[in-house]
Design a protein around this nucleic acid. Structure first.
Lengths: 141, 141
DNA sequence: ACCAGTACGGACTAATTAGTCAGGTACTCA
DNA sequence: TGAGTACCTGACTAATTAGTCCGTACTGGT
């Protein structure tokens, strides 16, 4: 098993929560999925400037194993896979809101730069791209 | 500069908050200081079973730089240093409470083990150990 | 004299995590 | 026939993070 996975024993709840959020891009993936509801692999990649495909898929797989994201495979050509948050993913995001506010305050305090993840810019193109045939089929790796 | 320190640019608040909490023991240090108010170096080490001295001091220094913990040096022999949370550290901990609850729920869900950090056991010995002379002097490294 | 305890600092190594790059599938369009 | 698209997989390497071990300076107890 190449992917990390610790899954206990944990010292406390924070420790357990940090375990699933640890990873350079996981919190960003959570944020992306929260804000867009459902995203395709390539959309996520574009929304996370600088992420490598390998890391993105690795994190997505781990988060799927941890029950945070749902993976829906559409059997069509070219392939289409949609990722969305599960119930647990949504509740985790809710628990992260306060932390996000603290972080925003910290950014203001120390005057750090903030890279702009252009959300408004590519929403339009996404809507236009969703015209193809659907019908999901639960197929494994 | 050997110690990490990223401090931006950040994608969002969560990213910024994660930056200061990232590190195997940081959330535990936060927890310890929150529950005991003030702790000496050796007390922290005993409270975090498995931590190496090097990691503990490295994390403490980073958290001090990030304005999360306050370091009070008492000029006496043997040396005595007390660590406590600053205002920012306390507010960060407050922001982590929800996350901790989510993690506790997750531990229950997946049935992970939980190592017991004996808090009740060594409180008594701490109280007994605080009899020596004090008078803090703000001295650098 | 010698060991234990206090709070570190630094060199070196091990482990973990992330990144690069070359494919691979399975089908469509020109 | 070859290119292009979308979603990956795996080998290899780089970077980051953590751990081990030893040293400092000083004192109190045996």
């Amino acid at each position: 098993m190449a992917t990390s996975a610790r899954r206990g024993p944990y010292f406390c709840g924070i420790d357990a929560a940090m375990d699933v959020v640890a990873g350079k891009w996981k919190s960003l993936i959570l944020w992306e999925l929260q804000h867009h509801g459902t995203r395709r692999f390539a959309e996520l990649r574009r929304g996370l400037p600088g992420v490598s495909e390998k890391m993105l898929i690795q994190h997505l797989r781990e988060m799927e194993e941890d029950g945070l994201v749902h993976r829906e495979v559409y059997r069509q050509v070219p392939p289409k896979v949609e990722y969305s948050l599960t119930e647990h993913g949504i509740s985790l995001n809710a628990a992260l809101v306060l932390l996000g506010e603290w972080g925003t305050e910290r950014i203001r305090r120390i005057g750090a730069e903030k890279v702009s993840v252009s959300i408004s810019a590519d929403v339009a193109s996404d809507v236009a791209a969703d015209v193809a045939a659907d019908v999901p089929t639960a197929v494994g790796r």
